[in-house]
Amino acid sequence: MRALVLRHDHASLSGPVGDRLVQHGFALDEHTVVPAERQHDPAVEFDFPAPEEYDLILALGAPWSVYDRAAVGTWIDGELKLLRRAHERDLPVLGICFGAQALATALGGSVERAPRAEIGWMPIRSEAEDLLPAGPWFQWHLDRFTVPPGAEELARSRVGPQAFRTGRALGVQFHPELTEETLSQWLDLGGARQAEEYGIDPAWLLSETRTRREESRQRAHRLVDGFLRSALPRTPASTHRTQT
């Protein structure tokens, strides 16, 4: 089985989410939309592959806004088309943060500036604990999505929806893929300054992430397991190489 992994920038790593997909037998085909040298000028040209070539799509986060065309340029249109086609063809799609916002937009929802930022380890109110434990999950976003028409909202916070499901597509606003390595890159790329602007100590974020390493890894694996059970119901749970 092949999984297309959309890395919107070089600092977007699939972490324990990607690891768990590999344990379930997926080969990851990673495509980076914005290369490192264009991090601060992300309006690049990018040709997205055809979703029909894959058995699953994983769309990761990004430091930009889906609606900020001045920043991302036209490549977001290609991604929205890919996500829409994947959903129409009943392919499993997992969108994370920016990826979830793009998925929501592609399926008729919207994205807007949130009333306040959510940065750090935070619990969510989950309506599907078997799939989405209440957390805490790592958050880093200034925007929020609206749930697409016909989709089921699975979790939310005081700021807005945190997860939705429609067909074989699942979007989550938080970051189950986060590791200390990934967070360190985000902080180096301007995240430390942004966190401080919101009164958050970057060193504390790293310390908390280090402390929560194992519990967050297990929680991410549980999310992937639940997603695959619902998206690929004929795939027995015993087919993956168990690593807890």
Score class of each variant (00 low, 15 high):
Phe48Cys: 08
Glu208Ala: 12
Asp29His: 12
His141Gln: 05
Arg168Trp: 12
Ile76Cys: 12
Gly61Asn: 15
Ile200Thr: 09
Leu206Phe: 08
Glu153Ala: 03
Leu228Cys: 07
Gly199Asn: 13
Asp143Asn: 05
Asp130Phe: 02
Leu205Tyr: 10
Pro233Ile: 04
His175Gln: 06
Gly61His: 15
Ser126Cys: 01
Ser230Tyr: 06
Ser230Lys: 06
Glu153Asp: 07
Pro161Ala: 00
Phe174Asn: 11
Leu178Thr: 14
Gly150Glu: 01
Ala100Gln: 00
Phe145Ser: 04
Asp47Gln: 15
Ala203Asn: 11
Glu177Asp: 09
Glu79Leu: 14
Val44Arg: 04
His10Met: 04
Val224Ile: 12
Pro123Gly: 00
Asp201Tyr: 02
Leu189Gly: 08
Arg116Leu: 01
Ala86Val: 09
Ala11Asn: 15
Leu103Phe: 02
Phe48Ile: 06
Gly167Thr: 06
Glu53Thr: 15
Gln194Glu: 13
Val72Gly: 06
Ser238Gly: 03
Gly61Tyr: 14
Leu83His: 08
Asp225Asn: 06
Ala220Val: 09
Ser207Lys: 09
Gln243Asn: 03
Pro49Ser: 11
Asp68Arg: 14
Thr166Glu: 09
Ala106Pro: 01
Leu205Gln: 05
Pro133Thr: 06
Leu189Arg: 15
Val72Asn: 07
His10Trp: 10
Phe174Cys: 07
Phe174Val: 06
Glu112Arg: 01
Arg222His: 12
Ile96Glu: 03
